[in-house]
Design a protein around this nucleic acid. Structure first.
Lengths: 229, 229
DNA sequence: ACACAAATGTGAGCACTGCTCTTGTTTTCC
DNA sequence: GGAAAACAAGAGCAGTGCTCACATTTGTGT
């Protein structure tokens, strides 16, 4: 299990690099993330870091995966602790996302803010961790639908949209109708819209004295969107 | 009206700087915006630009105001052309925002993406242009409410939230109830959540073959949120 | 056990960035 | 015309990502 000392040292160094990058990110924002600063903190000359991380973009990828996973882990934990009523589950998921985002604004920005220019995340490494939360959301909706906890009046869909949604339904073996799934996506984007406005201060300073309470109402509205009881 | 040649030249140069900055932004993203590159394009040495623009942040401020205004202008134009039915007006507003955002992703990112680290927009200059769109949205809702075009069942609000919303209602002399205004904010954040997901590619490539059509459904959902008819 | 190869760290260097400061030039105003 | 203000130039500082030649350490096959 344990490899050579050199392998162990390498793994430790990789962990250190991600840790330092994460700390840097907390204080400086994605665009100003500096490999040289990481090297300094690591007590090593700047070029040495390139033995471990191909480029700054590679470091970003590592931090993105790290952040997606931590957020999703906290969502999972919150869902496990919450009552099983679908509306309660949705609130638990939403609050977990918001709490994490408020606590880690830079890392949240890395995931859901402006894509870092000139960088595109390698899909094969970030897709899986990046979809965990929305998968949880869809799962909540799917279970609620199966158990009859969603009041939903059918709506017409454009053909292309229906086709795309049906493809998703097939891929994940969903029983809920396509128009409900469409609403589920609206909840998803609405959720992250609300969190982003909150975290990025789009409401303006001092507009809401208790942002968390206001956020709860926003989530309530989203729950109504899919008729959750 | 027309000042000295020097004043005219200065105004022209300022316009050129904003124009070049806008062009740069289109190809490079907010964080990589370079004053030196602007100077090069302007055919002048880098330090000369500082005669016109105090710092890179100052240039960002100019570009932010420029972008807010252009987006709001297009929204206004779209609203003027659209049918007066509130739901049609909402669709017109939403589509105008999305169209502009898709056409100008970097400038959209400047407004609604990650705040540029270390930079905070001077409120006294960006607040007014930055609130034009949401003002239009609230106006649509207010008129729809006044004319009885909104079916809305009252909802309880947390005290602090009600207090904040009442302050806003007073400030803008709104007749709609606070809980409807709350829903209006949900529409607002939901709208920009949907646009951001769309523009920033959060759905993943190829998920939706006709993103514009899907977006329409998202807006439909948001319209239901405030019971627009 | 020893040699060879792979992995790791060093330091110099390139081209770029934002920004400052001194120096010289041009335009405006009295 | 001459003083004052505005402007442009160029050098320079500290920082960035990244590459490369070189030295050192570590792992492995014979």
């Amino acid at each position: 299990m344990t490899g050579t000392p050199r392998q162990l040292a390498r793994e430790q160094t990789m962990r250190d690099i991600v840790r330092i990058g994460r700390e840097q990110l907390a204080s400086v924002g994605p665009a100003d993330l500096s490999l040289r600063a990481v090297a300094r903190e690591l007590g090593v000359v700047s070029s040495a870091v390139y033995r471990y991380v191909r480029s700054r973009d590679e470091l970003l990828t590592l931090l993105i995966i790290d952040a997606y996973d931590e957020m999703a882990d906290e969502v999972d934990a919150a869902l496990a602790d919450a009552p099983t009523a679908p509306r309660a589950q949705l609130h638990a998921l939403a609050s977990a996302v918001r709490d994490w985002a408020v606590r880690e604004p830079s890392r949240y920005a890395l995931l859901y803010g402006t894509p870092v220019p000139g960088y595109d995340a390698p899909a094969e490494r970030t897709t899986e961790p990046g979809t965990r939360v929305v998968m949880s959301l869809i799962a909540i909706l799917e279970i609620a639908f199966a158990e009859g906890h969603v009041e939903h009046e059918p709506r017409r869909l454009a053909r292309s949209v229906r086709r795309d949604l049906d493809a998703i339904r097939r891929e994940y073996a969903l029983t809920m109708p396509a128009d409900l799934l469409s609403r589920g996506f609206a909840v998803w984007s609405g959720l992250f819209g609300a969190v982003s406005f909150d975290v990025f201060g789009q409401y303006g300073p001092g507009t809401f004295s208790d942002p968390a309470a206001f956020f709860e109402h926003q989530v309530d509205a989203l729950a109504d969107l899919v008729g959750l009881s």
